[in-house]
Design a protein around this nucleic acid. Sequence first.
DNA 1: TTCGGTTATGAATCGGACC
DNA 2: TGGTCCGATTCATAACCGA
Lengths: 368, 368
Amino acid sequence: MTTVKTRGAPTLPVNSIIAGDCIEAMRALPDASVDLVFADPPYNLQLRGALHRPDNSLVDAVDDAWDAFDSFAAYDAFTRAWLTEARRLLKPGGALWVIGSYHNVFRLGAELQNQGFWILNDVVWRKSNPMPNFRGKRLANAHETLIWASRGQGAKYTFNYDALKALNEGVQMRSDWVLPICTGGEREKDESGQKAHPTQKPESLLHRVLVGTTNPGDVVLDPFFGTGTTGAVAKALGRDWIGIERDAGYRQVAERRIAKVRRYDAEALRVSTSKRAEPRVAFGVLVERGMLRPGEELLSTNGRHRAKVRADGTLAGPDVTGSIHQVGAHLEGAPSCNGWTYWQFKRDGVCVPIDLLRQQIRAEMQAG
Amino acid sequence: MTTVKTRGAPTLPVNSIIAGDCIEAMRALPDASVDLVFADPPYNLQLRGALHRPDNSLVDAVDDAWDAFDSFAAYDAFTRAWLTEARRLLKPGGALWVIGSYHNVFRLGAELQNQGFWILNDVVWRKSNPMPNFRGKRLANAHETLIWASRGQGAKYTFNYDALKALNEGVQMRSDWVLPICTGGEREKDESGQKAHPTQKPESLLHRVLVGTTNPGDVVLDPFFGTGTTGAVAKALGRDWIGIERDAGYRQVAERRIAKVRRYDAEALRVSTSKRAEPRVAFGVLVERGMLRPGEELLSTNGRHRAKVRADGTLAGPDVTGSIHQVGAHLEGAPSCNGWTYWQFKRDGVCVPIDLLRQQIRAEMQAG
DNA sequence: TTCGGTTATGAATCGGACC
DNA sequence: TGGTCCGATTCATAACCGA
């Protein structure tokens, strides 16, 4: 186990499983210390008993046994408690994922919103091999729902758009994910060869979550660790992880499982990066360096407009002056314009996009 | 308009649109009088500024006053009121469908449960042609959620298992439905040729709901009638319907629309059985599913080139990074390359084409 | 008339760095 | 912390238009 010092005590028990109740365990961890929470809370809503009185009023909460939720009120109280702690533990730019089925996910989502979390997407895990509905009384329950939320409206969050787009054959990732359930060799077994956990999640699901919404080195907390799928995938992907699990049997399976995981090498962990992350280049630098001469004429990509380069890196169009972006937007009557991809210059009679010059400068910056 | 006598007064204004607020209008209807409620309530989207597409065109947002609520509390109070009336109107063996997005559906589901409704399934409408996420800041919101609930635990409900199975090419219907959004000729227009309603639902969605969970002659109530999709499909399928709509313009469009609908004869109830092309598989899926490990080396079929798999499903070659197709094309100096047939991996000393893994996944998808 | 290229559009909680 | 301005970003489908 590693511990990471945060501002003041206590320390963060990274890459280890904390034994105990998730709410108490979270209370012992420091504010603003984790980048992501992934939670697969229990939803064994055992509602056979008297949930409602004859007049339909709700029966009072029973809050003495967390593992058997005798009423929606009890489940809501539990949800409120662990979400409150999770929100406290999240860094300002952190985010939370939670997964559930129709039994509990509506209560989870409503409570998330009540606490000020800001829902970014709900995601449907569409199971490619679900259990059929044997009695033919309902639709085959072939999906589960995940909710992805930032700490609050306007809060920052990590989203590796280009990595997910690459994972999806070059088309932007959608909110419906088709993945198989966890079976076969991936399914953890106990000593007697039985499945160790009733609802083990597939590693493919965590892979997509972690690649898409964390970076290497981030700290991922799973307060309902179970047999440690989150930890196994986090370790392989070079993320730090913290698990909380009450059941000693699950902890043992998870420890053994994660110990066997090897971290992928650094090159494999690098993902497609966004252009947004690349260093900014001022257009004026091209003029300073003599790549473009003051007075030189630029042409718009569509061939309809011209403008002249000025010594200070602005452009002079027919009736407007300003940055490459401003002049482009004005000439097109558009709300905005990316001047880098809009303008071209001529060399030896050939039109060349000015963005090529920016790429040259960026390459030099890399080398330098 | 037809009226149907129920036990005592008042009578049921079947196959007509009631003008006015849905809560008040429902209060005037008799207890236990309808077989199904289908509700498409306001989503409370909470949109902020204007949104432009990358081509600078403006997205026509849902900014109607009827969709805006001051707070979650206000939205919840509204939800509670109309659900209470809906439950009162349902016959003991009746059921309710409600549709929403992540903005409101968690609040809907929680309130349903609080009132004693019994959720039978949540159903995901996976849109085959959703609006993309133009800024690349989140996942494309490609689905909406429906909740199907009976009046209470243990209550009877109608479920036409075999009809839905037939609709699904002989396989048990699942909880995820892939249907296109409402566009083209199906979209109702106003006098000026503009879309008459910002959120018109596709008839295919209502078709599936009504075929699956009502019988001919049943009474279907839609308290948020809009331009009358529920009425149009109900009439075609030989179900009675009641619409409630506040907006006179929407009512007018709905009246005109439904008047043109003819009830299907058996022959017209055809199901399109167009064979789909082979489903596209993203290379990244092989990585997510652990069929290939990040860092694993692929060999070209001709044995001349090698590249390493990365966590996001891209390849890293000696001097190039990109999709399996891009890297293959670059290494061969070719304009294009089918990466699926170009690359192989090693298992137990044997070279295996990656296309074999794709075939495995396709087989799963067929089965699912 | 057919074919191919272009344009339009859909329930969307859709910046952020820097001064 | 508020204002300024750079500059990144889209998929499926149908209608439309010109040859």
